[in-house]
């Protein structure tokens, strides 16, 4: 079997399959469940300064296996209450990455500093949620702000900082380059794509927030393109995200330039067993293609074309 453990952003991961932020991350017990199911690490829900209920339902529109549209609205218990959930996950031995969202560099830095005290091994900055006013992609689409936020956070915390990049921008690779200039240890790409569902009988948008973010297999080629372009622009590691449903999908992201990946929507389609299955598929596929280690595949498609 191929070796699946990887190092990414200075973090040792037992395998490259991370639980994506927003999936299963509201309770500590759920983070433990994802860890026990075989995730290489778990990323918390994005945590803000204050408790936030999120948008009213409907917050989800699911399409058969090819995609999922959501506008949850960043629900989270707030940074004061959330550490008890992280403690549960850490108590079970999980590798935990803390995700935070703020409205400006100072808020990001404060949240990251509080998150760092919980014992997480890295901080992921949500610069890319496509459906929250004043947060996420609204500020993460501007390379100047991305650089400023990442710099403020890297100065505030002693941990690796991962900037999650939005695809809802003209030049996602430019945003990754800005994060690298700011001192990010890695970037993750992509978050969901801005999208809309309409109910024709009711003549109205389905989601209460109207606009949402599309995830799932439909966005994999877009995620791959972003990872590919980011790889050409930056030297820091990339965590690939978007539509991963199989070991082959993971390998595509690795070959495009990723060192690790995040998996989310597939958990809704398949259950948390997706982690074990995808890990086994990845290991077998790597071996059959002559890779001794997952890390050997990172960027493989670039060397073939250079």
């Amino acid at each position: 079997m191929a070796e699946l453990s990887v190092r990414c952003a200075g973090i040792a991961l037992r395998n490259p399959l991370l639980l994506a932020s927003g999936i299963w991350g509201e309770s500590g017990e759920s983070l433990v469940g994802a860890w026990k199911a075989g995730a290489g690490g778990v990323i918390t829900k994005s945590i803000g300064s204050f408790p936030r209920p999120g948008y009213p339902n409907p917050t989800i529109e699911s399409y058969d296996r090819w995609g999922m549209l959501n506008a949850m609205g960043l629900p989270n218990p707030g940074i004061e209450e959330y550490p008890q959930e992280i403690a549960i996950a850490l108590g079970a031995g999980a590798t935990v990455i803390g995700s935070v969202f703020g409205g400006d560099a100072a808020e990001f830095a404060n949240l990251a500093a509080a998150m760092a005290k919980t014992g997480v091994c890295a901080i992921e900055l949500n610069l890319s949620c496509p459906h929250a006013q004043g947060y996420g992609s609204e500020i993460g689409s501007d390379p100047t702000q991305v650089e400023e936020i990442v710099r403020a956070v890297t100065r505030a915390v002693p941990l690796p900082v991962i900037a999650k990049i939005t695809p809802n921008a003209t030049d996602p690779a430019g945003l990754a380059a800005a994060a690298e200039r700011g001192g990010a240890a890695a970037v993750s790409a992509i978050n969901t794509l801005r999208a809309l569902a309409i109910d024709v009988e009711l003549r109205r948008p389905v989601l209460s927030h109207r606009l949402g973010g599309l995830s799932g297999p439909a966005i994999k080629p877009i995620g791959l393109a972003c990872v590919w372009q980011i790889r050409e622009r930056v030297r820091i590691p990339i965590i690939g995200v978007g539509g991963i449903a199989s070991g082959r999908d993971v390998l595509e992201y690795l070959m495009a330039g990723a060192s690790a990946v995040e998996i989310g929507t597939q958990v809704a389609f398949e259950g948390i067993g997706a982690f074990g299955r995808i890990g086994r598929e990845l290991s077998e596929l790597l071996e059959s293609l002559g890779f001794a280690r997952a890390s050997d595949a990172t960027g493989a498609a670039h060397s073939a074309t250079s």
Binding site: W24, G25, N57, I60, N70, A268
Partner: peptide, 17 residues
């Protein structure tokens, strides 16, 4: 309950959804 699809964690109850 929000997603009802075992994803969003709103209905987490111990280790269950």
């Amino acid at each position: 309950m929000k997603c009802a699809l075992g994803m969003c964690d709103a209905c987490a109850l111990g280790p269950f959804h």
